[in-house]
């Protein structure tokens, strides 16, 4: 066991909509990332994975609201801190974020270097401009980005270059945890590869200590992260290593999700492609009992009202279902 860098305990957050209806997008999520490890979060769109990324920053602004739970970064509990302290001492330095839409993540009318200066000065108001520039140039060179990017406006950069710039700027303060929300989804294959390579480099060179990678593209996760969690309707339904999750999923939802993709590996060629019927539940009024029961082939009457706990099994794995592991595997083998 390595040293835990990020621990999330029973985190609950909600969106407050215009008509004061609450949407419980993250509902009791717990997990740990150890130093040097990367964790992937998978799920359909709308399952709460992007909200989870935002919620972990400990910095909330409407419509997102914190309800309860703890976020501990390298031993420091940030969930009770006042927002300005979080902004100054945590964001960017302890935990950093790469947004979903990197295309629009940079202010179009600002030069990159100006933005870097703003980022560094937000944490160290007295930082010298020349030093910042030197530091940024060094880091950009280290990550294989052309130096002249710093003196350009975001609008002058190509899509892939923008995404890499965003990654470089996000990690300029060497944060301990990097949260990447679909960093490569909108890119072409070559740019995607560059981005993944860059994230690996960040880990290898020690600029970040751990990484959380959120995507709906499962094959990508299998190639990038050590562990994978599957999220459904605001909750984690299963957790395991990347290999286990792809080749031996236990929860009916993960099973369905893995079945609905093509894994470019030997031995999966013959597997049937299946889609999961139905749509995820409305998170304004989450159903009692198992949230997946509505769409689950194996659901029993008790699934709809019993409280379903997280059930650990094997070595460090977890799933959330009333049925036993063997029972489920038995069912899958009949397909």
């Amino acid at each position: 066991m390595g040293k835990p860098i990020l621990e999330v305990r029973n985190l609950k957050t909600k969106y407050v909509t215009r008509f004061h209806e609450d949407v419980y997008a993250v509902d009791g999520v717990s997990f740990t990332i150890e130093e040097g490890k990367s964790l992937g979060i998978a799920g359909e769109s709308g399952c709460g994975k992007s909200t989870l990324a935002l919620s972990m920053m400990g910095y909330y602004f409407p419509p997102l609201h914190y309800i309860s739970g703890e976020i501990i970064i390298d031993g420091k509990n940030i969930s009770g801190m006042d927002p300005d302290t979080v902004r100054k001492t945590i964001l960017g330095t302890e935990i950093a974020y790469i947004p979903q839409a990197a295309m629009n993540a940079l202010n179009p009318t600002q030069k990159i270097i100006k933005f870097v200066i703003d980022v560094i000065r937000a944490h160290d108001p007295k930082a010298d401009k020349k030093e910042i520039r030197a530091r940024a140039e060094a880091r950009f060179a280290e990550l294989g980005l052309p130096r002249d990017v710093l003196d350009k406006h975001a609008v002058e950069l190509s899509g892939g270059m923008k995404q890499r710039t965003v990654i470089a700027v996000s990690t300029i303060l060497s944060p301990k945890v990097l949260i990447a929300d679909e960093p490569s989804s909108a890119l072409d294959v070559t740019s995607q590869k560059m981005v993944i390579k860059m994230m690996r480099e960040l880990m290898e060179k020690g600029y970040i200590k751990s990484m959380l990678f959120i995507t709906h593209e499962l094959p990508l996760l299998y190639n990038v992260t050590d562990d994978i969690m599957v999220m459904y309707a605001g909750q984690i339904v299963e957790k395991g290593t990347a290999h286990e999750m792809v080749f031996d999923p236990v929860h009916p939802y993960s099973h369905g999700l893995m079945g609905s993709i093509l894994v470019p590996e030997e031995g999966t060629r013959g597997t049937k492609l299946t889609a999961i019927p139905g749509t995820p539940p409305n998170l304004k009024k989450p159903p009692h009992g198992c949230r997946f029961a509505e769409r689950c082939k194996y659901a029993k009457p008790e699934c709809r009202y019993s409280n379903i706990p997280e059930r650990p099994f094997e070595d460090g794995r977890m799933y959330r279902c009333l049925m036993g592991v063997d029972e489920l595997k038995e069912e899958y083998s009949h397909e």
């Binding site: 940079l106 202010n107 179009p108 937000a122």
Partner: peptide
């Protein structure tokens, strides 16, 4: 989006 991003960088 850049507003959200800038906020999350502190």
């Amino acid at each position: 989006d850049y507003v959200k991003y800038a906020r999350f960088l502190g």
